[in-house]
Simulated scan of single mutants.
Amino acid sequence: MSKSEQRPNHPEAASPWVISTRELGRRPGGMRDYRRTVPAPAGFFLEVIGIPEGEPIELEVKLESASEGVFVSGTAHAVLVGECARCLEPIADEVTARLGELFAYPDSATEATTETDEVGHVVDDMIDTEQMVRDAVLLGLPLAPLCRPDCRGLCPECGERWADLEPNHSHETIDSRWASLQGMRGRLASAVADADPAENAERR
């Protein structure tokens, strides 16, 4: 599809993510502030941590009119849930993602010289902030969240959390070079025990 054939998606006016720019106008320098609480859609989640679907995201944004479009800045704040990357214990945290993106006017140079998915767009005097917020939130999530900075994780032998084990917790380890000999010793002992009692008496 050529650049001229590409069209940005039309925003759903009823969506809480969509903000009208009509009151802002196109004169550079105009500003308006907005505060909204938006339920998180699916997908605001990395592998082990994120914002559960339906949980509130607090948006505080400022719209500024510029010659090329509308610049949106502000923050998105939400509570996170997940599990520790080391010990798998449930954890809770918060994220405050900083926002900053230009939404281009349909007749601007920015609109004409960029691909549809490279920049936000003003469509019928509306902007959809969901993708901008999603990108900022996901970039702000920790890749390996921890229940505490010094978490030691799980014991590799029994799988229990080190934090729940005694300080001297340990497991007997057998050198692999002797493991087969110990197995032979066990089988020999079992064979002797199962032998005929009379035969054992003669041997004594």
Rank of each mutant, 00 (worst) to 15 (best):
I91L: 06
R177L: 09
G69K: 07
E160I: 04
P142V: 02
M184L: 01
K62R: 15
C158P: 12
P167C: 07
E89C: 12
G74H: 08
S73K: 09
L146Q: 03
G186H: 13
A66Q: 14
V133Q: 06
W17T: 06
G69Y: 06
L141V: 11
G43K: 07
E23V: 10
S67Y: 00
P41Q: 04
G159N: 09
T37V: 14
P145S: 01
Q182E: 03
E199T: 13
P39D: 07
R7T: 15
L181H: 08
L143S: 11
L146H: 07
E55H: 13
R86I: 05
P41H: 01
V81A: 08
T129S: 01
A13T: 14
D128M: 04
V95I: 12
C158E: 02
G186L: 10
E115R: 15
G54T: 08
Q131L: 11
P41T: 06
P145F: 02
C84I: 05
A14N: 13
S67D: 12
S108T: 06
V79L: 07
A201F: 10
R134S: 10
W17L: 02
A195W: 10
H171F: 14
A40M: 07
E68Y: 00
R26S: 11
P8G: 04
F44W: 10
F71K: 14
S108W: 00
D135S: 14
G30M: 04
R148H: 14
A179D: 13
R161T: 01
R148S: 12
R148W: 05
Y105M: 00
V70R: 07
T96E: 11
D124T: 10
V122L: 00
R152C: 02
L59R: 12
N200K: 15
T21Y: 07
D135T: 14
N200W: 08
L165N: 04
A13G: 03
R7Q: 15
N168R: 12
A13M: 07
H77I: 09
A189R: 13
S65A: 12
T21A: 07
L143Q: 14
L63M: 14
G140I: 01
N168L: 05
R187H: 13
L59A: 08
A136V: 08
G30E: 12
S73Y: 08
P28A: 01
G43Y: 09
P39F: 08
L80T: 11
A179Y: 14
V61S: 03
A179V: 05
L188N: 09
F44H: 08
V18Y: 00
T21G: 08
H121G: 02
P56M: 02
G43M: 09
G74I: 09
C147V: 02
L46S: 15
R36L: 02
S176G: 10
C155L: 01
W17M: 04
L59H: 11
C155S: 03
D175E: 11
A136W: 05
H10V: 13
I91G: 00
A76K: 06
C151D: 06
G30A: 10
A198W: 14
D125I: 00
S20R: 04
N200H: 06
V81S: 10
G30W: 03
E118I: 03
C147G: 05
V137E: 04
V72H: 01
P28S: 02
